[in-house]
Each structure stands twice: as structure tokens, then as C-alpha cells.
Design a protein around this nucleic acid. Structure first.
Lengths: 198, 198
DNA sequence: CTATCATCCTAACGATGTAAAGATACGGAG
DNA sequence: CTCCGTATCTTTACATCGTTAGGATGATAG
């Protein structure tokens, strides 16, 4: 009944099971969050038996690490595409950072510690990825800040963007429709600082 | 051989199973992180059968919610104890916030979204707790900032403290021994702002 | 055409959260 | 002091999960 091997999806030897699994994981991640990442559910969605997954990933945590890897490359790409020379000093980088987190909430949460079974090992594998992404942020600021202020300023920006991104992802700040405006005003405050006294 | 009912721990009717479970959960949380919160492991540590837990909590997520509740009351207590009228405007609040997170890393992560089985329901129960804690932060700033700047300034401070706390908890910033100095300089930057240009 | 190999499958193990249903001890009413 | 109801804890059981072991299938090289 079925044509011999025209469609690549339902062949016995799957077209590219690894990629299919990652794609399914990506959508599952955004549908139900990192805690719902399930090896069996992934196999089910791809139409494959659960143990087959182990021919492409050594564990569920390995899938999570691969996803985080994807996420960090996409994040750094987004940061590099941000207009470095715009008028605001760190606003573009901050906007790009938060935009990525808001576009991929589940993935972003996974990238920062959530959803790993073996936290000590899984997170450790992601540790280096985070540091590399951080280097990109620092590099973006290097041309615009004196060298001695750079470390603290970079940590400051990272903390602010990370915190705001997480709060918005968790819907803790009800920015409603004008989320962009909220982000803008917070980032502006970062550039100017709070009024010196009340 | 055992004295009839002197010690409260090994009676048939447990002394206070609910509290014992929460205490065990607290230490398990800091030992192995929120992902390792296990109902059966808790029952094991308290010396009780697993289904007994259901006489005190309706689910594992309910335990997590109770823990988060503890955490938020302790956090707000810490924030209220912070010297509001010190010379720095928001530094004391920021320090108290980050100090709590660093003292209870597992609990803090649990309070902000990690470790819930049913993310949609568990996190929703914690949502109100987070907002109440946020009100405390806002209240602490109300006396020292003009009313129109207050919402943005509070969100700014919360984002910064939240982000820095998480980065330090995840050991992403290797502050080493002088963590306090790092926190101080970042918070100082929050009060002053970045230099207007490079 | 055959043999090798990557790929996938079924079967099974231990551990988890949770649901019944039964046993035990505590505490108040007679 | 006795009895009984109720809260508390237990054993048993089920579905699901991540993972392992061993067998079958399809593609591919000689």
C-alpha cells in the first residue's frame, strides 16, 4: 500500500532522527516547559520507539544539552546582529537579549538551569556555553567602556537583562501589550541610573 | 524494650509529620536541588511510607508550594529587616535580597519556577506569593522616589537583584571569596548608572 | 547475491507519583 | 474504665518514566 520510500518521514531507517528529535523537543519545550521534556514523549511524537533515541543521544540530559547548545548559538547570533553603534549604549544588546528570551521562553529557561535531571552534570556541560555567550556581551561593550569599568558594567548588564527576561517570561511583570515600552524604560534607567537621592 | 511513647519521632502517630516532611524537603532541596525533590525520598528520610504523605499534602507540587511559601515569608522578613534609611538608596534592599538567595540557593530556585511538575498550576500558586514579595520591595522604595518613577525603578531593582542572584547561585560569576565586593560594585553601578558614553 | 553494519524494535528492570483499601493508635462519650 | 469513631499510617497495586539487553530489519559495499 505505501509507496516504497518516497517520503523520508516514515521509512524504517528514519530520514534524520536526530534532527527530528531535536525539532520535536523544541516544540515540546515551548508547549509545556522544560520540566515536561520526556524522552518517551519525544519518541512518540517522532513515531519511533523509545530506546531508538539512544542511538543518537546518550541520555535525556544529552538532548537537553544539545537544545541548550542550539539556544546559545541562536542567542549569540541575535546579540551579534544587534546594532552596536546605535545611540543608546547598551540598550540594543539588552533588547536583543530579552527579545530572544521572550521568543523562546522554554528554551531560555532550559539554558539557565531548569529541566536537567542530573543538575551537577547537565548544568556543568552548559556552563561553558553560558560563558561563551557572556564573552559576546563583553565584546560588544569593549569598544564603548573604559577597560577598568568593563567587568562590572558587563555583569551589571547581564544581570539586569537576565533578571528582566526571566520575570517577563514568568509573566511576573504584566507588561500587557506595551512590553517593549517597559523594556525600554528599564534599560534606559540602566543607562542613566537612578536619581542620586529621593 | 522501647519506652512507651517518650520520643515523639518513632511513635506510630508521628509527632508532626507535616513539619518533619517540610524540614526534610528543605535539606534535600539544598543538598540536591529542586529537580531532586522526591516524595518517596522524603518519606524515606522521615521514616514513613510514601502514601502517608498524602494525608498532609495533596501532591508533590503541594509540598513545593508550601516550601516556596516558607521561602517568600523568610525573604520578605529579610527585606524588612534591611536598613531602609542607609546612605545608599537601594543597596541595602538589594544586598538583603541577594543574601537570601545565596543562603538558600535551592529554595530560591524553587521559588522562581524550577522543580514544579505541573508548571501551569504549581507556578500559578506561587505567582501571588511573588507579587506579595514584590510589593515589599516597592514599599521600601516608596519613601525615597518620586511616584511617577517608582514602578520602573522598582522593576529595575528587582530585575537586577534577581538576575545577579541567579547568576551567582549558578556559579556563573566566579566571585570567589570577595562575592560581597562584586555585589557591592554592581549595586553601586545601579545607583549611579553607567557613564553616559564611552 | 551476500555479508556487514547502522538503525530500529520488543521485552524488561528499577524508580517515580499516586490511588485504593485495610490496619493501628489516639481521644472523647458513655 | 470501656468502647467507638476518627485521624493516621500501612501494604498493595498501577501507570509512567529513563534506561539496558538482545534480537530483527533495511541499506550498502564487495
Amino acid at each position: 500500500m505505501p509507496s516504497p520510500a518516497t517520503r523520508a518521514d516514515d521509512r524504517y531507517h528514519h530520514g534524520d532522527l536526530r534532527k527530528a528529535l531535536l525539532n520535536a523537543a523544541r516544540t515540546l519545550l515551548e508547549e509545556r516547559g522544560p520540566a515536561a521534556l520526556s524522552l518517551r514523549e519525544l519518541a512518540r511524537r517522532v513515531g519511533v520507539s523509545a530506546p531508538s533515541v539512544y542511538h543518537h543521544f546518550s541520555s535525556l540530559d544529552a538532548i537537553a544539552v544539545a537544545l541548550a547548545e542550539q539556544g546559545f548559538t541562536e542567542l549569540t547570533e541575535g546579540l551579534e546582529a544587534a546594532p552596536i553603534h546605535a545611540e543608546g549604549q547598551l540598550a540594543p544588546t539588552g533588547h536583543a537579549y530579552i527579545a530572544f528570551a521572550r521568543a523562546n521562553p522554554g528554551l531560555y529557561r532550559l539554558m539557565f538551569g531548569e529541566g536537567f535531571r542530573d543538575a551537577s552534570k547537565g548544568s556543568q556541560a552548559v556552563h561553558a556555553l553560558r560563558e561563551r555567550a557572556y564573552e559576546k556581551v563583553v565584546a560588544g561593550l569593549r569598544t564603548r567602556l573604559p577597560a577598568d569599568e568593563l567587568p562590572v558594567a558587563a555583569l551589571f548588564l547581564w544581570s539586569l537583562a537576565h533578571g528582566l527576561a526571566l520575570l517577563m517570561i514568568d509573566r511576573q511583570v504584566d507588561a500587557g501589550a506595551d512590553a517593549e515600552a517597559v523594556i525600554r524604560s528599564v534599560l534606559r534607567l540602566a543607562g542613566v541610573g537612578l536619581p542620586p537621592s529621593a
